[in-house]
Simulated scan of single mutants.
Amino acid sequence: MKEKLLEVRNLKTYFPITGGLLGQTTNYVKAVDGVSFDVYRGETLGLVGESGCGKSTTGRTIMRLIEPTDGKVIFDGKDIFNLKKKEMLESRREMQMIFQDPFSSLNPRKMVKEIIGGAFEIHSPNMKKREREEEVAKLLEIVGLNPDYITRYPHEFSGGQRQRIGIARSLALKPKLIIADEPVSALDVSIQSQVLNLLNRLQKQFSLTYIFIAHDLSVVRHLSDRVGVMYLGKIVELADGDELYSKPLHPYTRALLSAIPIPKVGVKRERIILEGDVPSPINPPSGCRFHTRCPYHMRICKEVDPSFKEVADKHYVACHLVDG
């Protein structure tokens, strides 16, 4: 029986919209609206969906870089949202994040030894300067960079090298969970596979658990044990990676998968083109949020929000078309 490292229950993150002379709240952007899932030790859970679906906000809320509106997150037995500032600082040792843009997430005015070594200054203030630099050099070597680069600045590196520095920073405090927020989307295709292979190696080497956030299902497939598909603030399907790719049940998942090229000459996949645009998270559609773009929608889809239910062994879906 796998052990749960992270439990997310009915997570909601709303951003207020203000207006008028008094700046009163007039509405909310419902970026994340009732998301629930578990993450097991040593696995990689992929979160995928179009831009604006709430996947990055989910990751940042779990880290409490954004404060939640409602819900519960249990990390390694601790309720993250009830922790005080000092307690949360301690938990941050075990929860780290890799950001999408490896340039904007690194301070251009600091050398590599300061960027990575900053974690030691906060969490190990008694560590001597030389010890910090030795640890930083080791981390650079682990991620495939020359340890002599510790005195260089971010602008002296390529995009792939900068992302390796970000990965090294996330490893500094020996975390249990790393949330990778689109870590390869800003990189050239030729570099993406190198970074994915690095993340895969590091997971085995340090027994890491990942939440891997991306908009590209073909990228997620290489790394994820299970995959959750998000649409307009909700998870619409969650299953084992192989199961999801071979037997997608939700129409939205099928549409996303249909866009992935098949690497075989002469073999084509039927392309499913979704009509219309993604609705606004300020005023999402009633019932199933996908019904405005779903080619199979029924009357009930407009009126009733489908429950997120298990329809096969560990295969969950929120769709009125699927019997469970």
Rank of each mutant, 00 (worst) to 15 (best):
Q24L: 12
M97N: 00
I179N: 04
F99P: 01
E43T: 14
M97A: 04
V8S: 10
A318C: 06
E131S: 08
R9H: 13
D70K: 10
G159C: 09
L5S: 04
L321V: 09
L238C: 10
I260Y: 04
L249W: 00
P183L: 08
P125H: 05
V29Y: 08
G23K: 07
K12L: 12
G52Y: 05
R221E: 15
S224G: 00
H215I: 09
R109F: 09
S280W: 04
P16S: 09
P284I: 06
L223G: 07
L177E: 05
A186E: 02
Y14I: 13
P154Q: 01
G266Q: 10
E270G: 02
P279Y: 03
G23T: 07
Y210H: 03
G276F: 11
E131Q: 14
M1Y: 13
I66M: 13
L6V: 14
P295D: 00
K309S: 12
R226H: 11
F120H: 05
S193E: 02
P306N: 11
L244I: 04
R221A: 15
S224I: 03
I116Y: 00
G228T: 06
Q161Y: 00
A239R: 00
A186M: 13
K113M: 05
K234C: 06
R289S: 12
K84T: 12
G241E: 14
M63L: 11
P285Q: 07
P125Q: 10
E275L: 10
V39K: 11
I273D: 14
R164P: 02
T25Q: 03
L6H: 13
R93I: 04
S190R: 10
K2F: 00
H291Y: 14
D33Y: 10
S193R: 05
I167D: 00
S36A: 03
H291D: 09
R109Q: 13
N10S: 15
Q194Y: 09
P68T: 14
R162A: 01
E121L: 13
T69H: 14
A239M: 00
R92C: 03
S207R: 12
V229H: 06
A318P: 03
R9C: 11
G324S: 12
I66G: 04
I273F: 15
Y210L: 04
D76Y: 06
K128R: 14
H215D: 04
K234E: 14
L202H: 05
P16M: 07
G233L: 06
I213R: 02
V229T: 05
K72V: 04
V73C: 14
S286P: 01
T44P: 00
Q203A: 07
F81H: 05
D38K: 03
L6S: 09
K309T: 13
I167T: 01
T209Y: 04
F206L: 07
I98R: 01
I98N: 02
T209M: 09
L198A: 12
G71T: 12
F81Y: 11
S193A: 14
I211K: 08
G324R: 13
V48Y: 00
F15L: 04
R289W: 14
V29R: 07
L145Q: 03
K129E: 15
S246I: 12
C53L: 06
R289K: 15
G276S: 12
I165D: 00
